[in-house]
């Protein structure tokens, strides 16, 4: 039972946030990870501001607090590996290298956005960066990600597909159908459950009978690990194991990232289902960006250098916000394009 062995051996001891002994990241990788996490944090803060100003409409789900997850996983991927996720997707887009200007312009519904103003916060795609959305139906991206992996298997192209889902989505029926299909066909799928503890306003303890979501693939013999999702080095190390396992043709792999979102489910959620102290404690003791910054200083990176990068990051985000606000609204004719490959007004 080689599989079962992998399953057990790969599971680190993660009783609570930040307690796992994370293998250190090399300095240059950690610096890159920190900058990426910072970019996402600043970008999301700006999106929150623009939402408050009425410049972003509809739903807007911020990734603040969870940055280490997508950045750590992305660091373990290679060019050509696919990424697909749910509606809490801005961080994933930035991590895959999509242009902050294009993302912010889409959030504000402008013609220069990735979807030309027709997708919005939840629906953006970049074939170039292998980012396949941005999907608003809870759990549905899991079936689609399984199909992306299916095409990799057929093409024998050595690529893996990373499918992110929340812990709320982990109870959707199509997730389990997909687990079975992926395991049966040995598809190169990495499923990443971002357990931020709350599915909208319901805590995971009140929504999941499963107490260890990393084992949700166990009936299909999908190896699973729990990972401290607030520590980018721990995420990266776990993701490397997952990628190696999938690329070697062993089939799917599951990671449960123990993480936390600082903001509400969406901008319209005041998050009254948890205490201020709980959020404050996470921010103070487990913030992935603070943690990485401290590690960088300890590794000898000059504080001035970090401050310079912080200023640079702010400038990138401000530029994206300025560009979005001055970009044109979509032309009314856009309404009729892209419905079908060749579409015209009725």
């Amino acid at each position: 039972m080689a599989r079962a062995k992998t399953n057990k051996a790969a599971r680190p001891d993660v009783g609570a946030f930040g307690t796992a002994a994370a293998p250190a990241l090399p300095r240059d990788k950690l610096l890159h990870a920190w900058r990426q996490m910072l970019l996402i944090r600043r970008f999301e803060e700006k999106a929150g501001q623009l939402y408050g100003m009425g410049l972003i409409g509809g739903f807007c789900h911020l990734y603040i607090g969870q940055e280490a997850v997508v950045v750590g996983v992305q660091l373990a991927l290679s060019d050509g590996d696919e990424v697909i996720t749910s509606y809490r997707d801005h961080g994933h887009m930035l991590a895959t290298g999509m242009d902050p200007r294009g993302v912010m312009a889409e959030l504000t519904g402008r013609a220069t956005g990735y979807s030309r103003g027709k997708g919005g916060s939840m629906h953006m795609f970049s074939l170039e960066k292998k980012f396949f959305g941005g999907h608003g139906i809870v759990g549905a991206q899991v079936s689609i990600g399984t199909g992306l992996a299916f095409s990799n298997l057929y093409r024998a192209n050595d690529r893996v597909c990373v499918t992110y889902l929340g812990e709320g989505a982990s109870n959707q029926g199509q997730v389990f159908e997909s687990f079975n299909l992926a395991a049966l066909l040995k598809l190169p799928c990495i499923y990443v459950i971002e357990n931020n503890r709350y599915g909208m306003g319901t805590s995971v303890d009140r929504a999941s009978a499963s107490r260890d979501l990393s084992q949700n693939g166990a009936p299909w013999r999908i190896p699973g690990v729990q990972v401290d999702g607030m520590d980018v080095a721990a995420v990266h190390a776990a993701a490397q194991t997952a990628v190696a396992y999938c690329r070697a043709g062993n089939g799917p792999y599951l990671m449960e990232m123990k993480t936390y979102r600082y903001r509400g489910h969406s901008m319209s959620d005041p998050a009254k289902y948890r205490t201020r102290e709980e959020v404050q404690s996470m921010r103070e003791h487990h913030d992935p960006i603070d943690h990485a910054r401290a590690a960088l200083l300890a590794a000898g990176v000059a504080e001035d250098e970090l401050k310079r990068m912080e200023a640079e990051t702010r400038a990138i985000v401000q530029d994206a916000a300025d560009a979005a606000q001055s970009a044109p609204e979509p032309d009314p004719a856009e309404l009729w394009t892209d419905v079908l490959a060749e579409s015209a007004p009725p």
Partner: peptide, 13 residues
């Protein structure tokens, strides 16, 4: 659901 989802995924790939 898995059949249709996998087909959509393969199609967008």
């Amino acid at each position: 659901q898995a059949i249709m989802g996998a087909a959509v995924g393969a199609a967008i790939a």
